[in-house]
Simulated assay, not measured.
Amino acid sequence: MSSFDIFIGETIGTTVLILMGGGVVAGVILKRSKSFGAGWVAIAFGWGLAVMTAVYIAGQVSGAHINPAVTLGIALDTGDIWGQVPYYFAGQLLGAMLGATLCWLAYYGHFRAHLRDREIVGGSGVPGPEALEGEQPVEERPAARRDEPGPVLAIFATSPEIRVTWQNLVTEIIATTVLVLAVLRIALDENAQVSGLGGLLVALVVVALGLSLGGPTGYAINPARDLGPRIVHSLLPLPNKGGSDWSYAWVPVVGPFTGGALAALVHQLAF
């Protein structure tokens, strides 16, 4: 496949992944959504199905890595795609940013309503001319609070439930090692490739990781999935959105890359 195919395939695939994955989180978090409060199981299955959809859309174009940690693991394991790695990474990051932007557009009114809800952000503002019908917006957050993670950051990026940096990093490394090792084994399974079940199997692995290891950090397991939407969150004109938590942003990048490299090492040694 050409470098252009790789870039386009990864851009489209990762866009679909983040649109659908971020979309399920938005549906669960945003108060006026019909799926509000559906819970972590819905999120885990939503992300898994997002992976499956993205793989089936982009698989024949670029191989649908849709994850820089997967690309790194495959490059280290096979040694024959290093020249294409920059195109994979560029498409994945661009796609993640596009997907996050599309998710914001799909839930535009819900973001505005959620972030002007006194129960969510506090305050005592009065409706302005830009308010939605029936909406009671609140005053902007005080400047001192704007660097703190806000009430919708989870739709775009991950954050730990208990902030213990070394543990958060280890959790991401462990989860990504399992993911990439599974991807490498599925890629070599002729039955999975012939039957077309590879995308479904990877999706089920993602669901399993969400249910088993997603609780501590939100299981980024994908540097582009976290970094691209976090950039978009920092740029979008969302009122009362809070900060983008850049002090934590390196963990869901370094952890998955380390896990991808470890998976390649384990695969070389064991298989």
Rank of each mutant, 00 (worst) to 15 (best):
T101G: 15
L93Y: 14
A50S: 12
A106R: 06
A69T: 09
G46W: 09
A131E: 14
A50T: 02
S62H: 05
M52P: 05
G123I: 00
Y88H: 14
M97G: 13
A54Q: 11
G125Q: 03
A96T: 09
V51R: 06
P86L: 12
P68G: 07
P68A: 05
F89W: 15
H114V: 00
W47A: 01
V85G: 13
G125D: 08
S62A: 04
E119Y: 01
H110I: 00
P86I: 15
G123Y: 01
E135I: 10
G122T: 15
P86K: 13
Y108W: 10
A64E: 07
G83S: 13
L98F: 12
A50E: 04
G125L: 07
V138T: 15
Q92M: 05
E140H: 12
G128M: 08
A58S: 15
G59V: 05
W82A: 12
R116I: 00
G123S: 03
W104V: 03
I74F: 04
G73L: 11
T53V: 15
I81M: 12
E135R: 00
L115M: 15
C103H: 08
A50C: 02
L115C: 09
Y107H: 14
S124P: 03
G63W: 12
Q136H: 07
P129M: 10
I74W: 00
A54E: 08
P129S: 08
G99E: 06
L105W: 09
W47Q: 06
A131N: 08
Y108M: 10
E135H: 03
L93T: 09
A58Q: 10
A96G: 15
T53L: 03
L49F: 15
L49E: 06
E130P: 01
A64C: 14
Y107S: 04
A113R: 11
Y107L: 06
I66F: 09
W82R: 11
G59T: 11
E139N: 14
N67R: 01
D117W: 07
I57W: 11
Q136C: 01
G128E: 05
I120T: 13
E130H: 07
G99V: 00
G134N: 08
A50W: 02
Y108H: 10
L105R: 07
D117V: 05
Q84K: 15
A106I: 09
G125H: 03
T78K: 14
V51N: 07
V138A: 06
V121S: 05
E119S: 10
D77Y: 14
V85C: 13
G91R: 12
V85T: 14
V138I: 11
V51M: 08
L72E: 10
G125M: 06
L93R: 03
G95W: 02
H65Q: 11
L94D: 01
A64F: 12
P129F: 12
L102E: 04
A106W: 02
W104Q: 02
Q136P: 04
